[in-house]
Write a protein that binds this DNA or RNA. Structure first.
Lengths: 191, 191
DNA sequence: CAGGATGTCTAGCGTTGCTAGGGTGGAGTG
DNA sequence: CACTCCACCCTAGCAACGCTAGACATCCTG
């Protein structure tokens, strides 16, 4: 492997990331339906086929954006949990952080948890960021709770439902705080 | 209004419903991405523009299917609730019925609560079937519970999250029974 | 029976995701 | 230094998409 091919590999990796961030920027500016391979190619200043030399197709690009987003979410939840004054408050802090994330980055959230992606959840080859994010929910529950994972699944499901139903206007956009409060009180004591 | 124009109106209404059921059948057989205006037109044995004389566009057709589905869901939930041996058991019965519906008719469920539609939820002009379906959740809670609607929103959100996350493989497909059990126990006593 | 309205179809526009095939320029070799 | 070759990228195009304009036929009305 000569220095030249190494340089090319670096440039290629650079362009790979450029495509991902361009897709994300475009989606956050105009929504995922505006992210077409043509517009994306124009943004990165290459022709369409270049995209296909990096990704298997549009879904793979969305998946890459989603994975980045999940990493950010995991870090976001982690910060919230660690900033909480104690384990009892961590549950609420993490839940609020989750809903805030979904509200402030709705398009990113959509890629992560609504659109079809290639990401393998809950399996042997689940990428670390996914594990980390889910792990933050698990960490909200007592270590001696033998059903922590189950609690985490249901908690996550409830938050996801609240986020998506309010985002799509199927439940009123306001009232999130009350829903969060109710959810917490129903779970907190049996944490 | 002559008898002739009445007959035409009947035929037109008949064809209207034919389009809706054809769209639903096609979607349930091959998924919503297979429901194209061309294939749909072929199924109903009319040309594409005919679809547009009945509906404003593809979204409107999906919305019509969704509305039918919500009517069926409301009836399904209602039957489950009334068949329960008492109000205390109604909660579990309705929740199980909801998850069963989502599992057995995933494509219909997708149109109802995932895909973008024209349906107005939670507003003044909300269609009766939507109110009826949501009302079934409200009816699971004690009449003297002043926050019944809030409870219903959170319960629905949790069920919706469980249904969609498991459907898309983001939580394991099995374990639904345990999730349902946990959800019920967290809510039942403060019903 | 002519005239008009109603209804439906053919044809086509602009856009989509994706790909085949040609051309160019730099890397390696004699 | 010249030549070959290969890796890279672009132009051009395919089939399919949602949707629509305009021509054609069919039926009711005066």
């Amino acid at each position: 492997m000569s220095a030249i091919s190494e340089r090319r590999e670096r440039e290629r990796a650079r362009r790979h990331q450029l495509i991902i961030t361009a897709a994300r920027d475009l989606a956050e500016a105009e929504g995922w339906e505006a992210v077409t391979t043509r517009r994306l190619a124009e943004r990165v200043e290459y022709s369409q086929p270049v995209l296909y030399s990096h990704f298997d197709g549009k879904d793979a690009i969305v998946s890459a954006v989603a994975l980045d987003g999940i990493s950010e979410l995991a870090a976001h939840l982690r910060r919230a949990r660690q900033a909480a004054p104690g384990p009892a408050h961590a549950l609420r802090a993490v839940c609020r952080a989750y809903l805030d994330f979904a509200t402030e980055r709705p398009v990113l959230y959509e890629a992560m948890f609504v659109l079809p992606t290639n990401l393998k959840f809950a399996s042997a080859e689940t990428p670390p960021p996914l594990r980390a994010a889910f792990g933050e929910f698990v960490s909200c529950f007592r270590p001696d709770n033998e059903r922590r994972e189950l609690f985490a699944e249901v908690l996550w499901s409830a938050l996801h439902g609240i986020a998506t139903l309010s985002r799509s206007g199927r439940i009123p956009p306001d009232g999130q705080e009350e829903r969060l409060g109710l959810l917490i009180t129903q779970i907190a004591d049996t944490r």
